[in-house]
Amino acid sequence: MFTGIVEETGEIVGRSRTEDGLRLRIAADEVATGLEHGQSISVSGACLTVERFEEGAWFEVFLASETVERTYLGELSEGEAVNLERAMPADGRFDGHVVQGHVDAVATVSGIESVEEDWFFEFQLPEGYDRYVVEKGSITLDGISLTVADLAEGGAPQAHRNDGGDTAGAGRVTVAIIPTTYELTTLSAKEPGDPVHLEVDVLAKYVERLLEGYVPDLSL
Rank of each mutant, 00 (worst) to 15 (best):
G74E: 13
S188E: 09
L151R: 00
K136R: 14
G213L: 11
T181P: 03
G154T: 02
D201E: 12
L211D: 05
E135C: 01
F120R: 05
H97M: 01
R86W: 03
G154A: 01
L151A: 02
V43Y: 04
Y206Q: 01
A81K: 09
V207T: 09
T147D: 06
F2S: 14
L73M: 12
S114N: 06
G45F: 02
A87K: 04
E19A: 15
V215T: 11
V6F: 08
A156N: 02
T174I: 14
V200K: 09
E85C: 12
F121W: 07
R25I: 10
I5Q: 06
L24A: 06
G155T: 00
R172M: 10
L48D: 03
D91K: 07
P192W: 10
I177M: 13
I144V: 15
C47G: 08
E66M: 13
S16Q: 13
E11G: 01
D130A: 00
E36L: 09
D194I: 10
A87Q: 04
E69N: 14
D104S: 06
Y206V: 03
D166S: 11
A168I: 02
E7A: 14
D163S: 10
I178C: 07
G143F: 05
A28H: 04
T3H: 05
E36Q: 15
L24I: 10
A107P: 04
I144C: 15
G34L: 11
A81F: 12
E127V: 13
F53H: 09
E75R: 14
E11R: 14
Q124P: 00
A64S: 15
I5L: 15
S188K: 15
E113Q: 13
H37C: 08
F59M: 12
S65W: 01
P179M: 09
G143D: 08
E153L: 12
V50N: 13
A159T: 02
E7H: 05
D150W: 06
V6Y: 01
G74P: 11
Y72H: 14
V31S: 06
T181M: 11
T67G: 07
C47K: 02
V31K: 07
L146K: 02
T181V: 09
V173Y: 04
R17T: 00
T3R: 09
A32N: 06
R86I: 02
A159E: 12
A32S: 13
T3Q: 11
R15I: 07
E8C: 14
L151I: 00
G137F: 05
E117V: 10
V133C: 11
G111N: 06
L218D: 10
P195C: 12
I139T: 08
L184Y: 03
L63Q: 08
G165Y: 03
R17S: 06
E183Q: 13
Q158A: 02
G14D: 15
P192I: 11
L210T: 07
G154D: 00
G96D: 04
D217F: 11
L22S: 07
I177S: 04
A28S: 15
N83D: 10
D217L: 03
E36A: 15
P192M: 05
R25N: 01
A105L: 04
E208K: 09
F62W: 05
K136M: 06
S42Q: 05
L63N: 05
Q158L: 10
V99Y: 00
S44V: 01
G143A: 06
G38Y: 13
L84I: 04
D91L: 09
